[in-house]
Design a binder for these strands. Sequence first.
DNA 1: ATAGGGTTAG
Length: 789
Amino acid sequence: MPPPPARPQGVTSLPHQCSVLLRRLAASRSLTSSSFLRALRCLHARLLTSALLHAPPHPHLTLRLIHLYTLSGDLPAAATLFRADPCPVAATSLVAAYAAAGRLPAAVSFFDAVPQARRDTVLHNAVISAYARASHAAPAVAVFRSLLASGSLRPDDYSFTALLSAAGHLPNISVRHCAQLQCSVLKSGAGGVLSVSNALVALYMKCEALEATRDARKVLDEMPDKDALTWTTMVVGYVRRGDVGAARSVFEEVDVKFDVVWNAMISGYVHSGMVVEAFELFRRMVLERVPLDEFTFTSVLSACANAGFFAHGKSVHGQITRLQPNFVPEAALPVNNALVTLYSKCGNIAVARRIFDNMKSKDVVSWNTILSGYVESSCLDKAVEVFEEMPYKNELSWMVMVSGYVHGGFSEDALKLFNRMRAEDVKPCDYTYAGAISACGELGSLKHGKQLHGHLVQLGFEGSNSAGNALITMYARCGAVKEAHLMFLVMPNIDSVSWNAMISALGQHGHGREALELFDRMVAEGIYPDRISFLTVLTACNHSGLVDEGFQYFESMKRDFGIIPGEDHYTRLIDLLGRAGRIGEARDLIKTMPFEPTPSIWEAILSGCRTSGDMELGAHAADQLFKMTPQHDGRWVDAARVRKLMRDRGVKKEPGCSWIEAGNKVHVFVVGDTKHPEAHKVYKFLEMVGARMRKLGYVPDTKVVLHDMEPHQKEHILFAHSERLAVGFGLLKLPPGATVTVLKNLRICDDCHAVMMFMSKAVGREIVVRDVRRFHHFKDGECSCGNYW
DNA sequence: ATAGGGTTAG
């Protein structure tokens, strides 16, 4: 018996043993779905890393460790190991892992870290596909070109697959372009490869041209083998082209229906807003025992969230919970993301947060979902918290935050963030620009707005509708109606939002008739007006005093367009009537409303009464309003006491008198002369005060509602301002001779009888109060008045 | 070590 061959030296060394173990661990594919295995891998990787700290460096081992780390989801650890030796194989793993996590810049950095001479085809492929995944066509093509230009390297079928996929993200991809690509694929000999053909089908389906579907079909018919993805590609392609019917017939054509095709069809219905059909298909899937996977659930959950079928969504949630053990963390990720969306859309942000917190792995989408959940629930401070806490952000995170700021009235912060974004070298997308432009509009900063317009043009975002619409609004807000109109004229494809913006622009500047004409033209051009359009029209009528026209459009909205007027439409109409002194009609209108009057309806009535001097109705409206407004939370001046004082002094609901309601909703009834050249500043300032108030967190859901900033009102505008702390408060102007006891947080100017309310935090601070003509300087309880101009 | 399609955030 021959002796066993002697072991080669060094094989039993620690690195070698580890290497064997690692290879086994990484290869245990059958257990991939177990999160336990992932944890185990991670644990092993960590143990080995520390064990090998003092062992001699071993390239193979490092590679295996990197692979293990990427498999177990510990990307930073993998990246650290890579930096010690930037080899192409490790880079490939990392590029793929980071791209899969949606972190493109990091993914590309690994490619960059490998010296050009060491980059191989596989690494190039990984980068091309990383760019393709992130829909960045141009850089993907550039990397492909560099692969060709290298001389020593040749693209393989992976390269072509990734390239074709990237090409699908090119804007206006043409059939000719596709054919050219097909040609070069054939020439390279990658023509018969399934994945390449699938990518080609997808590419043709992405062309806008009608005949492109024929070409796609031709490729498909010539394919010797087709798999689930081939059919899915066709279904998805048709859905993208807006042809759900064709998608459905492809779906029916497939004999053996793979679950992927079902999922594609369901998500197709969801995207087309055909929620009923989506659910129908989902039911059939269950009946036919097609395995439901995370994609199915994600689509169905998204359907529930979009359609507002929250109860249904919750029952699907239950179903998922029963299946949870079968879900791998990375598979459950999109499902969890969809769940977070569902709960935050149905207003249950707390549950959304709980799901988010319990998620084992989170990606950019998860963070963005919870971020926008907070933004939509007007919890801006929470949103900011999340934003700063996010381990990684993408363009969308910034966009959500910028537009969230604008939406919440924090235009200054929006612009600040926008600037920070550029300082951090993040390229804003057109939506972000739209947000920043709206912020300029809100702040009335034409100069800055124009500047951004310039950047937009430079960046080639000219054709963007969101940015264009924001520009129309911005120009209108800044008083540049001509520019707004010009924008409206040059925009390549105006949508209903553009029309609404332009109608509103005209209305704002008192061109009521033109606004109505534009509305008629919109309808004549076949654009269906929505509820916003009518809101805009009513506002335009309001600004120009077109009472009868307002009524006509209101009637037409119900009769011709089947839009049920909401609270906001009634409010506008009542406001319109009130301004025209036709308060009686407004009162009659309330009775015909299909719902009980809301606070804003009473506010409109109240301000109408102020104009017409209808004391009786005004008193009634005020009483209703007070009844409805929630109690203050103790941090504010007791509005009830002030009200009582006013009543006691016989100043209740006097025309021209403005007042405040404290509580969860703070109404700042500003009575002002808007013709004054400085008036718009006051207006902006008050908005800012409201915004800051919320930001400071004094009263969570505070809304500052401004009233009576119309040209025909000519009274004082009073407001308060502190250099350090802008405080939210309201102002009462009492008639001369009225005496009011000073409450804890209340001060009165003896000279002009302005009553100020401060938050307790502001008491004792130096507060400067100005009105348009006078200023009040409060210090140590003293008030000095003087002329401001 | 890399790939094609479908899911989630606006």
